[in-house]
Computed example of a mutant assay.
Amino acid sequence: MKFLLLDDHPLFRQALKSITQRLDPAATVFECASYDEARPLLGDDVDLVLLDLRLSGLDGMQVLATLRSQHPALPVVVVSASEDKHEVMEVVRLGALGFVPKASSAEVMEHALRLVLSGSIYLPSHIMPDFEVPAAPQRDSALDLTERQMQVMRLMAQGESNKQIARKLNLAENTVKVHVTAILRELNVSSRAQAIVALFQRGDGPS
Rank of each mutant, 00 (worst) to 15 (best):
E90N: 14
V76S: 03
H111G: 11
L97V: 14
L58G: 02
L97P: 00
G57Q: 05
R114A: 14
S69P: 07
M109T: 12
V49M: 05
L117D: 03
V108W: 07
S80M: 06
L115A: 14
L117N: 04
R54C: 07
Q70P: 05
L51E: 01
L117A: 07
V63R: 00
V100A: 10
R93Q: 12
G119W: 06
S120I: 09
P101I: 13
E110H: 14
A38E: 03
L58F: 04
S82V: 11
V76F: 00
R114F: 03
V92Q: 09
V108Q: 04
D47P: 02
A103M: 08
G95S: 09
A112H: 07
A73M: 13
E107Q: 14
A81Q: 14
L64S: 05
A38W: 06
V77H: 13
D47L: 08
L115K: 15
L64W: 01
F99N: 02
L97Y: 10
S104G: 08
E110C: 12
D44Y: 10
M109P: 00
L50V: 06
A73V: 10
G119E: 10
T66A: 03
K102R: 13
L58M: 11
L48E: 08
G60N: 02
S104L: 04
V49G: 06
K85L: 11
V108K: 08
D44K: 11
H86K: 15
E110M: 12
E87A: 12
L64N: 05
L53E: 01
R93W: 07
V108P: 00
H71C: 09
V76L: 05
R68C: 09
V91F: 01
A106M: 11
L42Y: 02
V116L: 13
V63E: 00
P40W: 02
M89R: 15
D84T: 07
P72F: 04
A81L: 15
V78Q: 03
L55M: 11
H86F: 13
S56L: 07
Q62R: 12
P40I: 03
G119V: 06
A65G: 05
L55W: 00
P72G: 06
L115S: 15
Q62K: 14
H86W: 15
S118E: 14
P72A: 05
M61Q: 10
M89W: 15
G60W: 00
V88W: 05
L97S: 12
V63K: 00
D59F: 05
M61E: 11
L94H: 00
V79A: 08
D52V: 03
L53G: 03
G43S: 08
A81T: 11
V78F: 06
V108M: 07
E110F: 13
G119H: 07
R39F: 05
M61H: 09
E107T: 14
F99G: 02
L55N: 02
